[in-house]
Structure formats: C-alpha cells, structure tokens
C-alpha cells in the first residue's frame, strides 16, 4: 500500500503575550488530499499556516511532513500564498516567478520553463515581460499563485485563494486545486466561501479560538449534525407554513410562494411530517437532507463558544 502520510499538524500551541492564538491545533492533510481550512476571523488559521511554513515557531506541538518533523529541506517543497499578496512591483513577471522558483531550489533553466508553463496555464502568458506592478489586480493574483506553484511543491498552503477573484477566475482556481490534488499534491486552503469549499473538498478542518472544533469528511460532518433540512414544495402557492408548528423543534429557514424550508431534528418522523404537509395541500416535492456546511460551521462555532462559557462559569 502506498504511504499517503503527508502533512501532520500535532498539538500546536502559540501564545502572543496574553492572547492564546493556538490552543492545541491538530489535523492532517494526506498526500493528494484537498482540505478546506475554515474558521471565523482571528480564529488562528493564518497563525497555523505560518507555523506550517516555518514563519513562526510554535510554543508547543509539531509540524510533520511524511511522518517526520518538517525540516528546512521539506519546507523547500512547500508552496505558500499568503492572504496579503506580496510581489515585487517593478520586477518583470516571468523573471519574478523564475526567481522565486530558483529561491526554492530549482535550477535556472527548469525554473524558467516551469514559470512559463504556469503563467501560460493561468492565462498571463502575454504579460511575461511586463512589470508585475502594471498588471491588473486579478492578474497579480494569478502571478502570486504561479509563485506558489512554480517550484513544483508537494504541499500547497493557500490563505484565502478565492478572495478578490471574479467568478470565472474562481472557477479556474477551483479546477487548478482539484488537478493539483489529483496529481498527488497535498492542498490546504482557507476560505470564507463555504459553498465553494463544500463543492471542492472532501475534508474540512474548522477552527475557533485556536482550537479545532470540527474536522473530517464534509459528508460525515453534515450527517453527524443532529438537525436536517426539510424542504417541501406544494403544487399550489400561498400555503402558510403554520402546519409545521406541530412538528417537534422545527424552525422555518426560508419560504417562497410554493416552497418552504425548515430545520428539523435528525430523528424526525418523516411519515408523520409528510402526512401533515399533505393535509394542507398536495405535495409535489419532499426532501430531507443533512444540513449545509454553513450550518455545520455555525453550530461547531456556537458549541465551542457555549462550552467555553460553561467552563468559565
């Protein structure tokens, strides 16, 4: 069996003065894994990423690559795209990407070829000799990604790669991450766009206040939730959602003319629910599904906040 051990983050702790930034963060990104890294602002995502890249020494815990503590040599095979982009404005595009690849240990000729290939794939091939500072915001973003990719990293760490991208560019980015993972690269990226994460990743890690509050396959996290999303479509408009009040702990999430969406307990008696709805009007569609990732996220964060408050009391 092929060893798929890639990135292992084990019990990272970090304190800045009195602020606890990381409080025992652990998770894994296997080889070829594509993991979404989620959390509210200030939850420790960037700090974790910096620790992975060796930009920050954690107070405790360890970053491992391929089963051993990540060393300087390993980190040469990491590619990083920080949230606040950093490029030399007055330097030419191709030269810049080539230079960064060389800095990561690639020979000049190979770096040049790789830089051309990536800039071509990302659609910046016609601006190779232009100074990066003269490129549009979107193109600079692409160049930044090329910098992260040109040395052929085995692990990609991308902080908010989708922020500031137009829908077409975002789609290109999604496809690219998918291809990278399929080719065996481990990919860890943070994002606030949960629908995109849900579409793209099998696994997610959710952090809050420096702790992992949920982690694992999106499917499992969704089905582990004690709630479900119930959507009922009637074949005529203007049915009031009052019928659902007789169901146990049910909340109306959304109502359109003929469709109503509720959050219901996972152990809801479906036959009874369908019966109540049908008594109101004839039902054309009836769906009972695990909640969206956004609900998983919200509940995980809320639970962690609740636990802390309880502990404080």
């Amino acid at each position: 069996m092929v060893d798929r051990t890639g990135l292992q983050v084990e019990g990272l702790t970090k304190r800045f003065g009195t602020v606890v930034a990381l409080d025992g963060v652990s998770f894994e990104v296997p080889r070829g894994g594509l993991v979404g890294f989620l959390g509210p602002n200030g939850s420790g995502k960037t700090t974790t990423m910096r620790a992975i890249l060796g930009l920050l020494r954690p107070d405790g815990g360890e970053v491992r690559w391929g089963g051993t503590p990540a060393a300087e040599v390993d980190r040469r095979r990491f590619g990083y795209m920080p949230e606040e982009r950093g490029l030399y404005g007055p330097m030419r595009t191709l030269e810049q990407v080539t230079w960064f690849a060389e800095l990561a240990g690639v020979g000049h000729r190979e770096a040049d070829a790789s830089a051309r290939r990536w800039l071509g794939a990302l659609g910046v091939a016609d601006r190779l000799t232009a100074d990066v500072g003269t490129l549009s915001h979107g193109n600079q973003q692409r160049v930044q990604l090329a910098v992260a990719l040109a040395h052929g990293p085995e692990l990609l760490v991308l902080d908010e790669p989708f922020s500031g991208l137009d829908p077409i560019a975002a789609e290109t980015m999604q496809q690219l991450l998918h291809e990278q993972a399929a080719a065996g690269t481990s990919v860890l990226f943070s994002s606030h766009q949960l629908d995109m994460v849900e579409e793209l990743c099998r696994d997610v890690v959710i952090v809050h206040r420096g702790r992992v509050v949920a982690a694992g396959p999106v499917e499992r996290l969704r089905s582990d939730e004690p709630v479900r999303t119930l959507t009922v479509t009637f074949d005529r408009p203007e049915v009031t959602p009052a019928w659902a009040e007789r169901l146990p702990s049910t909340t109306l999430l959304e109502a359109t003319a003929d469709r109503q969406t509720f959050e219901v307990p996972a152990d809801l008696d479906l036959a009874a629910a369908l019966g109540l709805a049908s008594a109101e009007a004839s039902v054309s569609r009836f769906s009972f599904e695990p909640p969206d990732l956004s609900v998983v996220f919200r509940n995980a964060v809320a639970r962690s906040t609740g636990t802390e408050e309880q502990a404080a009391r």
């Binding site: 060796g54 990083y80 950093g86 490029l87």
Partner: peptide, 16 residues
C-alpha cells in the same frame, strides 16, 4: 521597507 510593507517578506521567509 518595501519587502516588509508589501508582504513579500512573508513569501521570501517561507523559503529563505
């Protein structure tokens, strides 16, 4: 100052 303010330093220090 340029490398620090434009955050190039972060990319640089991830390799050097």
């Amino acid at each position: 100052v340029t490398e620090k303010t434009s955050r190039i330093a972060e990319v640089l220090l991830s390799q050097v």
